[in-house]
Design a binder for these strands. Structure first.
Lengths: 196, 196
DNA sequence: CAGATGATTGCACTTGATGCAACTTTCCGC
DNA sequence: GCGGAAAGTTGCATCAAGTGCAATCATCTG
């Protein structure tokens, strides 16, 4: 972490990390599948803990409330050293780290979707309902935006408040309750642009 | 694309691609920064077109409606060859491709956030408001879930309908809005057909 | 035709990542 | 303590992605 903070992520090679840690390059890869994994940690375990927290919420609690409270388990301790803030910012700035971070959320999506699916009143199904997946992804997007803004503020902003504000904006009713749900468009099957 | 469909993404090396295309390995990297870029195409240009479409929507249109219509410009032509469906599925299954795809959305976030910020009635600010970013990210999450379910269905499901259903679930009001005490309720939308 | 310009290519090199086999340490029953 | 199994560690060879550089080749223009 010190090396990353001093030299940046990409400039810090595995050889230097291994040397600084007093292990061989090969041993590094025995413990960490990649350089990104070293920074992001065991995402699977963390996701599991969020899932557990989500499923521990009362069944009658709404999806939004339940997922909000489940996310609370992710709050870092208040005594975060300055290094950690730099690392957090790095995770949002370095492309490959950001990508891994997003992948992590993708796995969480799968983990959290079943519970959310129940809370949304959607019928149980063998494969996750896209609506439940979208819901979890949107919640994670709010979380991400909040953490991002928090890291950007140097740790002074309140991430919980930021999260709540983000969710509120998603759900807000505008003056004219927009009609799109179920409204028809010109043609449902008109050709559009090419995919790329 | 043929090589990818036949052998999978990771098993297809740049050397084989270059050989099949009749160019040198080095020339490949002159045109494409990475293997992923070859598949995902020029994401920047596509994002620009979405941004243009978004800003072309009437100013009084709500954020959700405007972004929904802007996304319409992304619809692929109806005569998609079978290969393209396999590619689309590949983009959602191969980790590195999925990651790049998500990174693409991240750049789109920055592109679309300013307009959305206005539509949400948030004050103009030099740096994008996290709420606007969260909104765009959530909308992209709905889009992604819809496209995913569409690709999974083999191209038979209606992606627009899937998108609308996903958004509806996000915005739905339960009997008790947010506070922890409250009963769960069925969806107001007909459960409808799920993606598959 | 000469020269400039840009596309193409080969080559060397760095880095991340994996498989394999050898080696070292630790642990456990005897 | 001893022998050996099991786990941890390492070196080596190898592959694939990606980059910088310089030489070549094609094309366009005066």
């Amino acid at each position: 972490m010190r090396l990353f903070a001093e030299n940046g992520f990409e400039a810090t090679t595995i050889d230097r990390i291994a040397a600084a840690a007093g292990i061989s390059r090969r041993t590094f890869f025995h413990y960490f599948g990649s350089k990104e994994e070293l920074v992001l940690g065991d995402t699977e375990a963390l996701g599991e803990s969020v899932r557990a927290a989500l499923e521990a919420r009362p069944v009658e609690e709404s999806a939004w409330t339940a997922i909000r409270e489940a996310f609370m388990t992710l709050r870092p301790p208040e005594d975060l050293p300055t290094v950690h803030l730099a690392i957090a910012r790095m995770c949002h700035e370095v492309p490959s780290l950001r990508a891994r971070h997003l992948e992590k959320h993708l796995r969480w999506q799968t983990l959290l979707a079943p519970d959310i699916q129940r809370r949304l009143g959607l019928p149980e199904s063998p494969v996750p309902d896209p609506r439940a997946r979208a819901f979890v992804a949107a919640a994670l997007a709010c979380l991400d935006a909040a953490v991002d803004a928090w890291a950007e503020s140097g740790g002074t902003a309140d991430p919980v408040r930021l999260f709540d504000e983000a969710v509120a904006v998603l759900r807000e009713r505008t003056i004219a309750p927009d009609p799109p749900e179920g409204a028809e468009r010109e043609t449902t099957d008109a050709p559009g642009r090419s995919a790329r």
